[in-house]
Design a protein around this nucleic acid. Structure first.
Lengths: 197, 197
DNA sequence: TATGGATCCATA
DNA sequence: TATGGATCCATA
């Protein structure tokens, strides 16, 4: 899988220039590059059937790489002191602080929650930085309908940029397939939502 | 239907003390009170089957009342100048400004988008004020699974309270059934999502 | 094609 | 019971 864009949605303070971010960024880039399809190949080729590919397996390889190669923790429950929202997909601990990563291939509305959650962690000071990974609009049509995608979230960026925060960093990685090929198998869909009809 | 709580999530400026808000508030309260089930009765009685009631018809009566009795516009497309997100459920025009209302019975993640959208309208200055209507956690178990509900959104309030804004007002109305009765029919579900399995 | 939604799933 | 998600629908 390739990264076609990186956006610093929130960058207050020096984290963006830190060594920590430089390392984390390269780990995330590296892990994303390890997502291939079909398995056994060296790049991510998608069958261009509209809404033809499920999203569940896509995240796998990236999460495994973050965990096994770079020592991240997966599905971390975050304690925000009081009433805490749930988990984030992956975290890396740096000097007793968390860097949090959310992989967003749920519904686009779920992407709003994901960003809100990362922002909350920054506000509470439990995250030093955070990142969201989501598909480009070019990949979007081939995946389960209404999956979160960069272009549809972008009009809301001003909301998060208006957050009053003392320190915090939030990056967005936009991912896309490397090639299109009707001969590769589609990615299997789960039984969620309305899949069984 | 009854309103069990009203929260001023954002209140910067004088809108909350204005005559406009006093009128709009009473219109919204009035419209919500007109939601009944089964139809023909005088209150909202729900069949307490877990996940047994669809949400689509619930909004109906309220929207019709806002439109027919109080002159609101439904499904208003909002022009936020540049890249604009879509529509809000209902708007009332006051001195060339909009008051916007979102009725949230989509997935809880969709409630995040709804608030983000209202906030964006406030930031852009196209809304003078805004309101979100959503079910209480007590009503929640009887509706389609994972519907937006107040208690699950509440942990995120600090995110929206941290928005840097010069002027704006955002209220949340929490609604609930008046009675529970196993003898009333369940509210019909649509064919959306995974309904047909 | 684009956007808000409605529905049910998986897992702790 | 609680939470993040995955899936397909309806409509303009």
């Amino acid at each position: 899988m390739k990264i076609i864009q990186e956006v610093s949605l929130i960058s207050v303070g020096s984290f963006e220039e830190s060594k920590d971010w430089s390392i984390i960024r390269s780990e995330v880039r590296n892990a994303i590059s390890l997502i291939v399809h079909p398995s056994g190949t060296l790049s991510f080729t998608i069958n261009p059937t509209r809404h033809g590919n499920g999203v569940k397996p896509i995240k796998e390889a990236c999460m495994i790489a973050l965990k096994d190669r770079f020592g991240w923790r997966l599905e971390t429950s975050i304690n925000y002191a009081t009433k805490s929202p749930g988990k984030v997909d992956a975290t890396k601990v740096i000097d007793n602080y968390f860097f949090a990563l959310e992989w967003e291939t749920g519904n686009i509305s779920s992407s709003h929650r994901a960003v809100n959650k990362l922002v909350l962690g920054l506000l509470r000071g439990v995250f030093l930085g955070a990142a969201l990974v989501l598909p480009s609009r070019k990949l979007y049509p081939y995946l389960t309908d209404r999956i979160g995608n960069f272009e549809e979230l972008e009009p809301y960026f001003d909301v998060w940029r208006a957050i009053r925060i003392e320190e915090g960093f939030l990056a967005i990685f936009v991912i896309e397939h490397d090639q299109v090929d009707s001969n590769v198998p589609t990615i299997i869909k789960g039984t969620d939502g309305r899949a069984l009809i």
